[in-house]
Write a protein that binds this DNA or RNA. Structure first.
Lengths: 143, 143
DNA sequence: CTCGAAAATCAACTGAGTTGCAATTATAAT
DNA sequence: ATTATAATTGCAACTCAGTTGATTTTCGAG
């Protein structure tokens, strides 16, 4: 999914230096087939280079504020992150109650719901997050 | 909203004793016009009686497992809780980026989306959570 | 009453995420 | 090239919502 993104260029557009840590994080997120926890990202970077966890958290927060990644508030007080490039449109997520793993679902047509979901009284709606909770096929077969 | 619920009876149905703390928590959740954090619930109970925070967390977890309350994974690593009685059907939530306050939105017709959202490959979908993030009308007027 | 289970308490812990500041690295100006 | 400047990263210590395990209290059945 990341193949089509030029991360150095993207960072430049955002006015950020294309540092090794930032590039590694974007590559890792781009190669991931699911949303990752900060800890997972940290471990994956550390297979390549020595990095401090604070750096990862700060970069994630920075990317998130710029809309380069989406921070997902899933179950369990651990945030998940996924790339928000043009090739990764927003989509619902499925999370298993047992193994806590997260799957990305196909984007659904949300435009119709949008105005309805905007809420009353002049709120400005910026993001929508849809989370489905249940039991994934793997955990269904176990129990 | 709680007026129509008989909390003692509800607890009995679930095989739980109608203890003062449990009743107080259900009443507080029933009177609330929005989803509450555990800490808020704790503070509200403490205006009436002396309670330990662990008790509140354990009861919330217990209610949540039984489907008596819904635990909402909103932004910020702090869970919110709302009553899940028959008079409180599931609904989307709006959360302000600035003041972090949570509003309940009107329930939308989700049945149509349900199968689509269930996800691929035999997952069992149990709950759906829709979170809208944005700027509430109060914070819009300030900035 | 009294005995056992359910419920509540207490202190200590966990762990994801944060903060402040120091050290490093890259960019720009001279 | 060299220094000034700002951006980035590292380190240690902290925060705080939520958890754990062991103990004490409460309640309802017999």
């Amino acid at each position: 999914m990341s193949d089509r993104c030029n991360f150095s260029h993207w960072l430049a557009l955002e006015g950020l230096r294309a540092t090794p840590v930032r590039l590694a994080m974007l590559e890792i997120l781009g190669e991931a087939s699911r949303a990752l926890r900060a800890q997972e990202i940290l471990e994956l970077i550390r297979t390549r280079r020595r990095v401090n966890k604070v750096t990862v958290y700060r970069i994630l927060e920075d990317f998130s504020r710029r809309g380069m990644v989406r921070k997902l508030s899933l179950e369990g007080r651990v945030n998940h992150f996924e790339l928000a490039c043009e090739h990764h449109p927003p989509h619902p997520h499925f999370q298993c109650q047992t193994c806590r793993e997260v799957q990305c679902l196909e984007p659904v047509a949300l435009n119709r719901m949008w105005t309805e979901l905007r809420g009353p009284l002049g709120n400005r709606a910026d993001h929508i997050e849809i989370r489905i909770e249940g039991l994934c096929h793997k955990c269904r077969n176990i129990s």
